[in-house]
C-alpha cells in the first residue's frame, strides 16, 4: 500500500532532556482524512513540526509520499502543505502578496502563482480582501488565508494544526465542507483538533497520542465500536421533578432537566420507551449525547495517565 506519510521510530528530545516523542510509528494512506488527537503537550504539534521541517528530530525516519526527509527533503516538501496553529504570516503584507510569495518559494512563477492564488482565495471567500493588509483581517479570515497559502503550490498532503481554533460554528462548518471537497479531489489531509466532533465528522482514521506515544491508530469506525455504553437524552413532556423508574438502566437529569439514559450497546431502546409508557410519561424528542468520540478519547487519556508507568497500549 502506498502511503502519504510514513513515520518510523520518531523520537524528539529537547535540550533540557524532555522527551516529547518516544519512538512514534505512524502511517497515513494516500487519500486519507486522518486525525491526530491528544491532550495539550501530548506531542501532536511536535510530530507535525518534524514532518514539516520546523522541528529537528532526534531519531527516526519520516517519508512523505516515499520521499525521505533525510535524503530527499526538497521532493518531500514539494508534496506538503502546512497550516500551523499560530498565525505566522507577515502582518504588514497584503493578502495576495502573502499567497503569491509562498508560491514563489516553491519555484512557481508569478503569473502562475496569481492564477492559483485567485482560485484558492475565491474558494475561501478572501478574493475581495486580496489587497487588504493581513493584520486587518478577522480571526476566521486569517485562518482561511493560511489554508490558501498552504494550498497555492497544490500539495498532495495537507497538514492542518488546529485549523478551526477560535472560529465560529458557521465558518467552521464551511471550512469542513471545503476540506472534505479537497479530500474528495485527492488531497490527503491530516489534522489535529481539540474539537472531537470535528474529527468524528471529517476523518476516516484516527491516531490518539499522549505523552509522546501513539495509544491507538485505527479507523474511526473501529474506535467508536469500542464504546460499550451510549447515552441518550430524552426531553420529557410536561416536565418531571422525580426520576422515572427504569429497571436495568442508569439514568439522571441533566442541567436542563432532560432525562439522560445510559444504554448498553446492542440492548436497544424499546424497553426504555415501554417502561416510560407504563408510567404515563411521554417523550417529546430524543438525541444522542454529543459526543461519542470525546467520551472515548477522555477514557483513553485518563487510562494512560493512571497507568503512565506501564505500557499504555495495555490499558485500552
Amino acid at each position: 500500500m502506498a502511503y502519504a506519510l510514513e513515520i518510523q521510530g520518531l523520537t524528539k528530545t529537547y535540550g533540557d532532556g524532555f522527551q516529547a516523542l518516544k519512538g512514534i510509528d505512524l502511517k497515513v494512506a494516500k487519500g486519507d482524512f486522518f486525525a491526530l488527537l491528544g491532550p495539550n503537550g501530548a506531542g501532536k504539534s511536535t510530530t507535525l513540526g518534524v514532518v514539516s521541517s520546523l522541528v529537528n528530530k532526534s531519531a527516526g525516519q519520516v517519508r512523505v509520499f516515499g520521499h525521505d526527509l533525510d535524503t530527499e527533503l526538497s521532493a518531500a516538501k514539494l508534496n506538503l502543505g502546512v497550516v500551523p496553529q499560530e498565525f505566522n504570516f507577515n502582518q504588514f503584507e497584503k493578502v495576495l502578496d502573502i499567497v503569491t510569495t509562498q508560491a514563489g518559494y516553491y519555484g512557481i512563477p508569478l503569473k502562475q502563482a496569481l492564477i492559483s492564488a485567485e482560485k484558492y482565495l475565491k474558494q475561501l471567500g478572501l478574493w475581495d480582501k486580496r489587497n487588504t493588509p493581513s493584520r486587518t483581517l478577522s480571526g476566521g479570515m486569517k485562518r482561511r488565508l493560511m489554508i490558501a497559502r498552504a494550498l497555492v503550490h497544490e500539495p498532495r498532503l495537507l497538514i492542518l494544526d488546529e485549523p478551526t481554533a477560535g472560529v465560529d460554528i458557521e465558518l467552521r462548518r464551511s471550512m469542513w465542507t471545503f476540506l472534505q471537497e479537497m479530500n474528495r479531489n485527492g488531497t490527503t489531509i491530516i489534522l489535529t483538533t481539540h474539537y472531537l466532533e470535528e474529527a468524528e465528522a471529517l476523518c476516516r482514521n484516527i491516531a490518539i497520542i499522549d505523552h509522546g506515544q501513539i495509544l491507538r491508530n485505527t479507523s474511526k469506525r473501529e474506535l467508536l465500536q469500542q464504546l460499550s455504553v451510549e447515552t441518550f437524552v430524552l426531553d420529557l413532556a410536561g416536565g418531571h421533578q422525580q426520576l422515572p423508574q427504569l429497571d436495568g438502566y442508569v439514568r439522571r437529569f441533566d442541567k436542563d432537566g432532560a432525562l439522560e439514559v445510559d444504554v448498553q450497546k446492542g440492548s436497544g431502546l424499546n424497553q426504555v420507551f415501554v417502561q416510560l409508557q407504563q408510567q404515563g410519561i411521554e417523550v417529546d424528542s430524543m438525541r444522542t449525547k454529543a459526543n461519542r468520540l470525546e467520551e472515548l478519547f477522555v477514557r483513553m487519556v485518563e487510562a494512560n495517565a493512571d497507568n503512565s508507568d506501564n505500557d499504555p497500549k495495555a490499558q485500552l
Binding site: 521541517s53 520546523l54 506538503l80 502546512v82 499560530e86 505566522n88 510569495t101 518559494y105 516553491y106 519555484g107
Partner: peptide
C-alpha cells in the same frame, strides 16, 4: 521574520 514566525513560510518550502 523570526520574531513574527513567518520564517516558517520559508522553512516549510523546498528553498
Amino acid at each position: 521574520m523570526k520574531f513574527q514566525h513567518n520564517i516558517e513560510e520559508l522553512l516549510v518550502s523546498p528553498v
